[in-house]
Amino acid sequence: MKPTTSTLPPHLPAPSPALSADDQEALTDLYIRGTPANTLRAYERDLLYITAWKTARFGTALDWPESAATALAFILDHARDLNDASKTDVARETAEALISQGLRKSLACPAPSTLDRRIASWLAFHRMKNLASPFDSPQVKQARAKARRAAARPPAPKSQHPITRDILEQLLATCRGSRRDCRDRAMLMLGWASGGRRRSEITGLMREDASCKEFDKTGLVWLSLLGTKTTGKGETPRLVLKGRAAQALVHWIEVGQIKDGPLFQPISKADRVLARRLSPDAITQIVKHRLKLAGLPEGFASAHGLRSGFLTQAALDGAPIQAAMRLSLHRSVAQAQKYYDDVDIVENPAADLLG
Rank of each mutant, 00 (worst) to 15 (best):
Gly59Trp: 02
Thr60Cys: 08
Ala61Ser: 15
Ser67Thr: 15
Ala69Gln: 13
Thr70Pro: 14
Thr70His: 11
Ala71Gln: 08
Ala71Asn: 05
Ala71Val: 04
Leu72Asp: 12
Ala73Pro: 13
Leu76Arg: 06
Leu76Gly: 09
His78Leu: 10
Arg80Asp: 10
Arg80Tyr: 11
Arg80His: 11
Arg80Ser: 14
Asn83Ser: 04
Ala85Gln: 14
Ser86Gln: 13
Thr88Met: 10
Thr88Gln: 15
Thr94Gly: 15
Thr94Glu: 10
Ala97Tyr: 08
Ala97Val: 01
Leu98Ile: 00
Ser100Ala: 08
Ser100Tyr: 02
Gly102Lys: 04
Arg104Gly: 03
Ser106Thr: 12
Ser106Val: 07
Leu107Phe: 07
Leu107Met: 09
Pro110Glu: 13
Pro112Ile: 04
Thr114Trp: 12
Thr114Asn: 09
Asp116Arg: 06
Ala120Glu: 08
Trp122Gly: 01
Leu123Asp: 05
Ala124Ser: 14
Ala124Trp: 11
Ala124Leu: 04
Ala124Thr: 12
His126Glu: 04
His126Trp: 07
Arg127Gly: 00
Met128Trp: 00
Asn130Cys: 01
Phe135Thr: 04
Phe135Leu: 06
Asp136Ile: 03
Ser137His: 06
Ser137Arg: 14
Val140Phe: 01
Val140Tyr: 08
Lys141Met: 06
Ala143Ser: 01
Ala143Trp: 01
Ala145Arg: 01
Ala147Met: 06
Arg148Ile: 12
Arg149Pro: 13
Arg153Gly: 09
Pro157Leu: 00
Lys158Trp: 07
Lys158Met: 10
Thr164Pro: 11
Arg165Ser: 06
Ile167Cys: 10
Ile167Ser: 05
Glu169Tyr: 14
Gln170Met: 12
Leu172Ser: 07
Leu172Phe: 10
Ala173Asn: 09
Cys175Arg: 07
Ser178Cys: 03
Arg179His: 12
Asp181Met: 13
Cys182Gly: 04
Cys182Asn: 08
Ala186Met: 03
Leu188Ile: 10
Met189Gly: 10
Leu190Cys: 06
Trp192Phe: 15
Trp192Cys: 10
Trp192His: 12
Gly196Glu: 07
Gly196Met: 01
Arg197Lys: 09
Arg198Thr: 04
Arg199Lys: 07
